[in-house]
């Protein structure tokens, strides 16, 4: 699948923007012996400055929108965003609520949408792998910009 060093060591930051914790539990289950994402070199980092991939769960509430944007801005380029679950992808049942902005893409650009309520751990791993394939495109774009 991946060959470059940066694709083999994606460090993950997880942020809950108002989720019911269903998707969060599935993300945490990735660390357990059953799924063990460390075998792909993935580590859960609690620090946006060290992270490469941002996993967001839940519809973005208006209170959380600025925090999400700040976290995104703090991550060093090239960075990837994965919207985990239906709420993060579209806003799902919360679209139009007075306190909700909608999906994650209404605040920051999203690279991969992972469907499901809650999203399954296997699909999450697939989503992150798909995000890694986008890495090279981002890197080339950065080099062109520079």
């Amino acid at each position: 699948m991946a060959t470059r060093n940066d694709e083999l060591s994606p460090w993950i930051l997880h942020f809950d923007t108002g989720s019911c914790n269903g998707c969060d539990i599935e993300i945490w289950s990735l660390l357990t012996p059953r799924y063990d994402i460390e075998r792909f070199g993935m580590i859960n980092k609690g620090n946006p400055k060290h992270a490469d991939i941002l996993l967001v769960t839940g519809p973005v509430t208006k209170k959380c929108a600025t925090r999400l944007k700040t976290l995104y801005d703090m991550m060093p380029d090239p960075k990837l965003v994965v919207a985990c679950g239906d709420c993060a992808s579209t806003g799902a049942p919360f679209v139009g609520c007075y306190n909700v902005c909608g999906g994650v893409d209404s605040v920051i650009p999203v690279d991969v949408y992972v469907p499901g309520c809650a999203c399954r751990p296997e699909v999450l791993i697939d989503g992150v792998v798909m995000a890694l394939q986008k890495w090279n495109e981002k890197r080339t774009m950065e080099e062109v910009k520079a």
Partner: peptide, 28 residues
């Protein structure tokens, strides 16, 4: 550590890969 926790664990070269990735990133 991974085997003690019942996991498969990363490659033995994982720490070097992490280092190379970090050195290749510009950062802020």
């Amino acid at each position: 550590t991974a085997r003690m926790q019942g996991r498969k664990g990363p490659s033995v070269l994982q720490s070097i890969r992490d280092l190379l990735k970090l050195l290749g990133k510009k950062g802020s």
